[in-house]
């Protein structure tokens, strides 16, 4: 159902652009129906159209369109300097845009007047690392921040949920990097947000800490929180995200599920093996057939046989390379 709605909406928005909005002569009655259809479902938490942000003539964000649904974990993936953080900071209200439309929880995040505090009451933000003196304990910090919100979560429960229960009386500056990052997440969720932004949350984690962290994020999704995550770890996007946007040089290259990204699910499989002392490889949409044939050629084990499909990393690097190639 969600998927159908998204399809209708995408059709609508492209048609909307074709007609130049609800201008004269556009068959707006047709779309008004769809409008009400997806507004009633209330699935869209973030809507971005044609977003631009320029720093000193550098197009940090160069025409981005996004539509993020309620309850979704949405990952923004891209190399350093691709425009991930700028995009997210515009959505959070930290930065102003040069042009484009942005609605987050039906609010324009760069608006400073009435409603801005209520907007921040509904979102949670986990920034890239903070490095304050950390003279408070874990519990004191979480408890204090809970006092900024209208409907906070129980601070003790938050401390437990980020796995710092045993550290609740520890001063923040005694925590390890991973523990401190968990605390950052705790501060992001203590206000009971509908929408949580995570900016490169696991940078510098060891693999085990990263896996624990993913569990924490999955737990939040169970509670219905929409999560927008920037990362440059592919396995993180693959493990967590419902959908991934790959972004490079301020442009979105593709938005899809991790499994379908870069036509990964339908791409050819690669079969490779050794014969007569040299490696052979064959790309095929019927790898089973190829292997069956090889089984007849060889008696017993097929030397160094492997069947593989493009990993997310393969398609990602391909996409980034292609886009870098186009623009130079």
């Amino acid at each position: 159902m969600l998927h159908q709605i998204r399809l209708i909406r995408d059709l609508h928005s492209s048609a909307f652009d074709l007609w130049g909005g609800y201008g004269e002569g556009s068959p707006s009655y047709l779309f008004a129906f769809f409008d009400s259809a997806w507004q009633d479902e209330d699935v869209s938490v973030i809507e971005v159209r044609n977003l631009h942000k320029t720093y000193d003539r550098l197009e940090a964000v160069d025409g981005i369109d996004l539509s993020i649904d309620q309850g979704e974990i949405f990952a923004i993936l891209g190399p350093n300097g691709a425009g991930k953080t700028t995009t997210v900071e515009i959505l959070e209200g930290f930065r102003t845009r040069n042009s484009g439309e942005v609605r987050v929880l039906d609010f324009d995040p760069q608006f400073k007047g009435k409603g801005a505090r209520e907007f921040r009451d509904r979102i949670g933000i986990v920034l890239q690392s903070t490095s304050d003196a950390g003279d408070l304990t874990v519990y004191e910090t979480i408890h204090h921040f809970s006092g900024y919100y209208s409907n906070p979560r129980n601070p003790l429960e938050v401390v437990e949920s980020i796995g710092l229960g045993e550290k609740k009386r520890a001063l923040v500056h005694t925590l390890s990097g991973g523990q401190r990052r968990r605390l950052d997440v705790g501060l992001g969720i203590v206000g009971n947000p509908e929408l949580l932004f995570l900016d490169e949350p696991t940078t510098g984690f060891d693999p085990e800490a990263r896996r624990d962290f993913w569990e924490l994020i999955r737990g939040l999704r169970e509670l219905g929180t929409t999560i927008v995550l920037t990362t440059h770890y592919l396995e993180e996007a693959e493990a967590l995200a419902d959908r991934v946007a790959v972004i490079n040089r301020g442009k979105i290259l593709e938005i899809d599920t991790p499994a379908n990204l870069g036509d990964r699910s339908t791409s050819l499989a690669r079969v490779h093996w050794e014969s007569a002392g040299k490696m052979n490889e064959q790309f095929t949409d019927k790898p089973t057939e190829v292997v069956a044939k090889l089984m007849k050629e060889f008696t017993g084990e097929i030397p160094k046989l492997a069947v593989s499909r493009a990993t997310l990393e393969d398609v990602y690097l391909q996409m980034i390379n292609d886009s870098d190639g186009e623009s130079t």
């Binding site: 979102i123 903070t130 206000g191």
Partner: peptide, 8 residues
């Protein structure tokens, strides 16, 4: 910046 992201 962290404070700025809260309703305070």
């Amino acid at each position: 910046k962290r404070l700025r992201g809260t309703p305070i």
